[in-house]
């Protein structure tokens, strides 16, 4: 099984992702009623075994969180979306998003933001390839208390390929960075390649 993407497939995937991110960003801005700007993300295909090492330095501090959400669509499209955060700005963001710090926990806010980001983005992606997705509930795999790297190693070992999408977005005057990772099993990669080939052929 080839997990190597051709130049054309890669270009196609990048474009689909750019458009999906644009849709997500717009929806998010309308929903929050504030200016959200999401930069066009850089995507990178990586062997999932390399993931823990890649993120260790960036997220090894105690002030980081990892939220995971599974997705499942037609044509064998499935995987797990992971959002990684630095928690530095979490409280300020919570206030901006209208969370009362007393009745909504930090974790609840994190799962909400992750879920909104993940589902709006993936819905945008699915829409473009005439697919639709269902989602599992988001789960906080690791936060202040737990070891981030361990959680990442544990998760990454279940998957073969990871699509790393670096997202950084800005909310009013605060920039808020997070990384989104789409972890995809081998057979789903094959399915995605077929989908991409079909799109490239169409045009």
């Amino acid at each position: 099984m080839s997990t190597v993407f051709s130049e054309e497939q890669r270009d196609c995937l990048q474009e689909l992702i750019n458009v999906a991110m644009g849709l997500a960003s717009d929806k998010l801005a309308r929903f929050l009623n504030t200016f959200v700007h999401i930069q066009v993300p850089a995507i990178e295909l990586v062997n999932s075994a390399q993931i823990p090492a890649q993120f260790e330095a960036q997220y090894s501090s105690a002030e980081a969180a990892l939220v995971s959400q599974g997705f499942l669509g037609n044509d064998g499209l499935r995987g797990e979306a992971i959002v990684l955060y630095q928690l530095e700005n979490a409280h300020r963001i919570a206030a901006l998003l209208g969370y009362d710090t007393d009745n909504a926990s930090e974790l609840e806010m994190l799962t909400d933001i992750s879920s909104i980001l993940t589902t709006t983005f993936l819905n945008g992606l699915a829409e473009q390839i005439d697919n639709s997705l269902s989602y599992s509930a988001p789960r906080v795999l690791s936060s202040r208390q737990n070891n981030m790297t361990e959680a990442l190693i544990e998760t990454a070992c279940h998957w073969e390929l990871a699509l790393r999408v670096d997202i950084s977005y800005q909310l009013i005057h605060h920039s808020f960075n997070c990384d989104m990772l789409l972890l995809i099993p081998g057979e789903a990669v094959l399915n995605i390649q077929q989908i991409l080939d079909r799109i490239v052929e169409e045009y």
Partner: peptide
């Protein structure tokens, strides 16, 4: 929890995306 639930429902309606709540947090 009215304010919280209104915000959740609003996000579902506006974004046409699912929203979740876990017993671990609420």
């Amino acid at each position: 929890p009215e304010a919280w639930l209104r915000r959740k429902f609003a996000s579902v309606l506006e974004l046409q995306s699912p929203s979740f709540s876990s017993w671990e947090q609420r």
